[in-house]
């Protein structure tokens, strides 16, 4: 896949996270994933179809997921990844992927996205693409979200 494909996702994070109250959003490491994404604990999967086909997996620790959910809910304490926190974090990935899709469309590429599936568990791995995928780390107020982007 073309490395340029990651830019709409990076721009989407840079655009959405400050709206949710994050002050400092920066891009971290970028690497190439070979076959499997190793989950950090919480992985949210969103499928892409139409002129761009693939999957994106947002990978983060449970602690990070709770901290983001808390921020999204106006600083309310989040002690566990309960229904509401799950809903908030899923909605975040939905907004980011939706925003990225709009950016692709501005470049003339139609993309449709599936609803997010939140996957929780110890030691699981997943395959987002039949070939290699790109791994982008985004850091929002020292919370790390890893984007695994596999586009066919």
């Amino acid at each position: 896949m073309d490395v340029k494909m990651i830019n709409p996702f990076i721009d989407a994070i840079m655009n959405i996270m400050p709206q949710l109250g994050f002050q400092n959003v920066v891009k971290g490491k970028i690497s190439v994933g070979q076959q499997f994404v190793e989950s950090k604990g919480i992985t949210i999967l969103v499928g892409l179809t139409d002129q761009i086909r693939g999957n994106i997996a947002y990978n983060l620790t449970e602690q990070t997921a709770m901290a983001i959910a808390s921020k999204m809910m106006m600083g309310m304490p989040v002690a566990a990844l309960d229904d509401l926190a799950q809903s908030a974090i899923s909605e975040l990935t939905n907004m980011v992927t939706g925003n990225a899709a709009t950016r692709f469309e501005q470049d003339g590429l139609r993309v449709d996205i599936s609803p997010p599936s939140l996957v929780v568990g110890e030691a699981f791995k997943l395959k987002v693409s039949s070939s290699k995928f790109l791994v982008v780390e985004m850091i929002a107020d020292s919370l790390v979200i890893e984007l695994n982007i596999g586009i066919d």
Partner: peptide, 15 residues
């Protein structure tokens, strides 16, 4: 959308 594959036991999938 294209398939993605999850591998692991006792993982929970929530929508």
């Amino acid at each position: 959308t294209p398939p993605s594959i999850l591998i692991g036991e006792s993982i929970t999938i929530i929508n």
